[in-house]
């Protein structure tokens, strides 16, 4: 099969964060991890081209997936392979959106990323196989990818046994003991030392590494962002009041304060009376503008980003976080103040 491989700017050797804004480009043959993948595949399949894009560009440009797909097709792909993105959020989103677009357009595609990558839910109908958490697991991950490619080449569908990750379907079954008896038995076994036994496994909490501090607020561009659903009065873009599926942006250039009657909160999770009487109570634009005028803030970013946190699943919120970070970095913002309701 003719394979086109997608990697980000880092794995293509174009640079780290300073190159994250770079747009799509095509390179001949294999680059970076593609070399090892080609070795593992042997002669049966050939990586004919590598498509590269900066993470910020790929994660925050609406047309990025379509652009990258067109390049993939032009390179003569019979199969698109994206990643492995490991635990990297923007890279994972880029891989997932690209393989989703490819699969939807009839081009077989495969991505690899860590099961906790926020991109996973964006892969649509395309298969995703598990990668390790970091590039230290490059070789075993590429072995999984190579085996998956071999299987896809036979026309078969990937399953959990191939390392495929996705939400597992829950199926009903009858058990011998009723819940009360099982619960007592479980307590006894746990008291006896089997601490991890459960019938309801709960996802763990991830660890967020704090960013390096901004050197001086007086010379920085600072953004205001909120999950408190502050929107123009009348909610013209129909932001959800719960279980957000998207986020919005509104320009605040030249606005000194969020006036009551012009802005409102549509959050369905709390009484919005006080917020609507003075929307600065949710997004503190008036105070931030004053501090900007006095020189305490170098520059206030010219728009704010907003979604609703009410009932929004963690996986969705993580994806918004990745998208916001890419968006703000691209706009030259050094720090964001997020007000949460």
């Amino acid at each position: 099969m003719r394979i086109v491989h997608y990697v980000n700017q880092f794995y293509a050797g174009l640079g780290g964060e300073e190159a994250a804004g770079s747009g799509p480009r095509v390179l001949d043959g294999t680059v970076g991890p593609g070399r090892l993948l080609a070795q593992l595949l042997g002669d049966a399949h050939q990586i004919v081209a590598t498509i590269v894009c900066g993470d910020d560009y790929a994660a925050s440009t609406d047309a990025a997936a379509a652009e990258l797909l067109e390049m993939t097709r032009d390179a003569g792909a019979e199969l698109l392979v994206a990643g492995p993105a490991f635990g990297s959020g923007r890279y994972g989103l880029a891989c997932a959106r690209l393989v989703a677009a490819a699969q939807a357009a009839g081009l077989p595609a495969l991505a690899a990323m860590h099961p906790d990558n926020p991109g996973l839910t964006e892969a649509g109908a395309a298969p995703v196989v598990a990668a390790g958490a970091t590039s230290r697991q490059m070789r075993p991950t590429l072995q999984t990818v190579a085996a998956a490619i071999e299987k896809l080449a036979t026309g078969a569908t990937l399953t959990v046994a191939d390392g495929r990750v996705a939400r597992a379907a829950r199926t009903g079954r009858l058990v011998e003991q009723r819940a009360a008896a099982r619960a007592v038995e479980l307590v006894l076994r746990r008291l006896a030392g089997e601490r991890d036994l459960t019938e309801v496994p709960i996802g763990g909490f991830d660890v967020v590494a704090p960013s390096a501090p901004v050197e001086a607020a007086a010379s920085a561009t600072i953004a205001l962002v909120t999950e408190g659903a502050v929107v123009p009065a009348g909610n013209p873009d129909r932001l959800e009041s719960a279980r957000a599926t998207r986020w919005l942006r509104y320009p605040i250039e030249g606005i000194d304060s969020l006036a009551s009657g012009e802005w409102e909160s549509v959050d369905g999770g709390f009484a919005t009376t006080a917020a609507n009487a003075d929307p600065n109570r949710v997004l503190p634009l008036d105070a931030a503008r004053t501090l900007e005028r006095e020189g305490t803030i170098g520059r206030l970013h010219n728009e704010f980003l907003v979604t609703v946190g009410n009932g929004t699943p963690v996986a969705t919120a993580r994806r918004f976080g990745v998208e916001w970070a890419a968006e703000l970095r691209k706009a030259g913002v050094q720090a964001a103040i997020l007000t949460a309701t």
């Binding site: 607020a217 109570r281 949710v282 503190p284 105070a287 305490t296 803030i297």
Partner: peptide
């Protein structure tokens, strides 16, 4: 929760002063 950056129980000048301190502290 309904007003992370404000307090409707304060008189407006005190509320604004508090919000200013909140943003300063965030910085």
């Amino acid at each position: 929760i309904p007003y992370p950056a404000g307090d409707p129980d304060l008189p407006p000048p005190a509320e604004q002063a508090w919000r200013r301190r909140l943003v300063q502290r965030a910085l």
